[in-house]
Amino acid sequence: MSTFPLAAGRDREAVRHELVRRTVRVLGRTDLPGHLVRVTVGGDELAGFASVGPADHVKVFLPTSGGVVARDYTPSEYRPVGASSGPELDLDFVVHGEEGPASAWALTAAPGDEVSFGGPRGSRLAPSGYRNALVIADPSGLPALRRWVRAFAGVVPVHALLFGGAEAVGYLDDAELAAATPQVLAAEHDLVEVVASQDLDDDSFVFAAGEATALVPVRRHLRERLPKEHLSLHGYWRRGDATFDHHSPLDPSDPD
């Protein structure tokens, strides 16, 4: 299991990268649990790619019949020398039919197809010095959750809450499952109640990613329990809003 560097303390060290747009070709596509598809890309322009923070993302420029659209994705895993004897990068997509441009592309991407992406522009390392960490994700946040588990493994005890389907557990490998002690939340679970029952205090760190509306009450609860510097909470999508920008405030009523 590859790991990511940790900052020396609770402050998350920032690392800047040269912003490069790369054109790569599809090497293969793999179906994954949790309604995800992994597209592996490679090519000479991938050499030198760097992604050292668990919350990193790249901007993928996807060809569609109406032109090119850009979407942000977590780089799942980079191999300087992979099975193709060259650099390889895995990108994992949640698929839900061919309605969305990213889902449609991931379902039809074939070896040899070209695609471009840029970034990451920078990385923030995972912090050290915490007693424990809680990581929360629906299928859209699983690649980032996986990177957080890898970053903390063996250093900070981690508990993972997976909501959105029991099959999501199959996305994690054996080492990640051992490091994360995952708990699957069924539809009938109240996410806020489950989070409220967790062992959290001023020595805890929490990462969450997923559907924005579901995470707003979680954020409000956590802001009452923990300093905001101990939280990294992100809405990756919003139900019914195809133009949602994950950079926008998770809770518009309290954007700080």
Rank of each mutant, 00 (worst) to 15 (best):
A214N: 09
P143N: 10
Y78K: 02
A168V: 09
L107H: 01
P33Y: 12
V194A: 04
G66T: 12
G165D: 06
S84N: 02
P120E: 13
F163Y: 14
G141V: 11
G34N: 03
P80W: 00
G86V: 01
S140W: 05
V60R: 03
A144E: 04
L125F: 08
G48Y: 12
G235E: 12
F93E: 02
L185W: 09
A208E: 00
L6P: 02
P217W: 01
P75N: 03
G28K: 04
V184Q: 00
V135F: 05
A144P: 06
T181G: 10
V69R: 02
G119M: 11
F244A: 12
P63I: 07
L233K: 06
K228N: 10
D251R: 01
P33A: 08
E77H: 14
A180H: 01
V94P: 01
G240C: 02
L107W: 01
D11F: 12
P143W: 12
E193S: 14
P127H: 03
V24G: 08
D199M: 07
K228C: 07
E167L: 04
A8K: 15
Y78N: 02
G53H: 01
R147L: 15
P87C: 05
Y130F: 15
F152T: 13
D56Y: 12
L215V: 05
H17K: 11
S84A: 07
R79Y: 03
L142S: 00
A180E: 04
A102H: 03
S123I: 06
G28L: 05
A50L: 13
E13G: 00
V155F: 05
I136V: 15
H17R: 11
L215T: 05
S76E: 11
D90Y: 05
R150S: 14
H17V: 13
P54W: 08
A110L: 08
Y73P: 02
V20K: 15
G48Q: 08
S140Q: 05
R16M: 09
V216G: 00
L91F: 04
P252I: 14
R238I: 10
K228Y: 04
A104K: 02
L250W: 10
L231R: 14
L172P: 04
H159S: 14
R121N: 13
L36N: 05
G82R: 04
L177C: 14
P5M: 00
E114V: 10
V20Q: 13
